[in-house]
Nucleic acid binder design. Sequence first.
DNA 1: ACAATTAAAGAGTTTTATATCTTTAATAAA
DNA 2: TTTATTAAAGATATAAAACTCTTTAATTGT
Lengths: 145, 145
Amino acid sequence: MGVFSRTCEYAMRAVFFIAHRTPEGTRVGIKDISEGIDSPAHFLAKILQDLSRRGIIHSAKGPNGGFYMTEEDLSRPLSDVVEAIDGVQIFKGCALGLKQCSEKNPCPLHHEFKAIRNDLTKLLNGTSIKSFNEDLLNGMTSLKK
Amino acid sequence: MGVFSRTCEYAMRAVFFIAHRTPEGTRVGIKDISEGIDSPAHFLAKILQDLSRRGIIHSAKGPNGGFYMTEEDLSRPLSDVVEAIDGVQIFKGCALGLKQCSEKNPCPLHHEFKAIRNDLTKLLNGTSIKSFNEDLLNGMTSLKK
DNA sequence: ACAATTAAAGAGTTTTATATCTTTAATAAA
DNA sequence: TTTATTAAAGATATAAAACTCTTTAATTGT
């Protein structure tokens, strides 16, 4: 596995996909999303239910229903998605999994690893979903599987 | 979970522990190691068998047997341990898990994430186990659970 | 009111990671 | 050559992650 769990990868891709596909109040269904990001539909449904419950995305049932994101949703940092799915360990945890690891009692990787973790935090915490989406809309980046 | 799997965390801690405890041709047993790094003994045994098979550490059976590391082992980069256990995804994989992600077809995180991955690679690939061990021996860092 | 559409919820199954227990093989020392 | 000691190997067991299927609830349009 990479840095994030597969579930988290799906979640991020789905969020970008939804942002990209629902510019003005429109909605996009689970089938479209799961096909668009190449993920198992039912599994993704669970993930999006979770994100929806947490208010990270929104949904509506019934005809013309589906998932969408409000302006507020779009202005959140991507770290909210990661934290919702994978938790905070990735931003705070010791590389070696040591509970006692700290500035005062650093593990052999502590200082250098902290710098890397901080960069990751800065990237995910400091950039809104909207701004990632702008790169998508401008064709500068892609979600092609 | 953090950046590395739990198995990989145990592996790294064990490698540091072995390096620290076997300065001159001595060996250290699985019981000592598992207690020293706070990991399940039998599970760690499997992990060390794996590392041993791959030549990342060495072992000897029988009385006064145990695990140890040669000078060559000590001069390897820590990335060898990580790669043996968690694979290369963490050094090479797309943050979103996209197979097609590349310089030409970058995902929304691609460029910034690449920089972070490269820093991680530089840290783990560019530093020998021996040099991490020196910090341990000097008391500059610690493996305290 | 009814039928169609959609997400939510519930209840699984399968796969992978983590962990345990037992038996075997190798080595060393007596 | 026997006994003690140690890792290796094999066989499960348990827990968590990933995935699937079915039923329910909400909403819309007729």
